[in-house]
Amino acid sequence: MKTGLSKKQKATNIYFNEADGMIEVCTYNTALKNRLTVYAAKYPSECRLIDNDENGCLTFEIKKGRLSFKLTAPYSEKRRKAASDLAKLNTDNLKRK
């Protein structure tokens, strides 16, 4: 029998409204949880852990203005090819020594 949550159920949810000064982030994403945990420890007046559901989801409360979204334009075919060619030239950086 399968236990636990599926990847589809492991969502990151971000809640905020115009009235409150705080943003709530609920996430299963390990990298994001680690970043938020370090940030909360370093800046407790800006961010704090408010819930741990014991199923792998952590919920943080962060002051507005501290969390941002970066929108990037899609790469042109020329830029995508240039990045691919550069990566192919530098495959030695990926090999373990």
Rank of each mutant, 00 (worst) to 15 (best):
T3I: 14
L36D: 03
L71H: 04
R80Y: 15
F69P: 00
N17V: 09
N52E: 03
L49Q: 14
K2C: 01
K42T: 11
K88W: 07
K78E: 15
D53C: 06
N34W: 09
L94N: 13
D53W: 03
F16T: 10
A87Y: 15
K8Q: 12
K8C: 04
T27I: 13
G21W: 14
K64M: 05
R79W: 15
S84A: 07
G65R: 12
R66A: 02
F60V: 06
N13T: 05
S84G: 01
C26Y: 06
Q9T: 11
E18C: 09
L94K: 13
L36F: 14
K88H: 10
K63V: 01
Y39F: 06
K97T: 05
L36I: 09
E61I: 06
T3Y: 14
L36E: 05
T3R: 14
K2G: 03
T30I: 13
G65V: 08
Q9I: 07
V25R: 01
Q9R: 12
N34F: 05
M22N: 13
N93G: 10
N13Y: 04
R35K: 09
E61P: 03
E24K: 14
A11G: 08
S45P: 00
L58P: 05
T72W: 02
K70C: 06
I23D: 01
L36W: 10
R35I: 00
T27V: 08
K63H: 02
Y39W: 01
K8W: 07
A41G: 15
Y28S: 04
N55D: 05
A82H: 11
C26G: 02
K63S: 05
Y15E: 12
L67V: 03
L32I: 05
L58D: 02
R79K: 15
K42N: 12
R79F: 14
C57Y: 09
N29D: 13
V38L: 02
A87C: 13
Y39P: 00
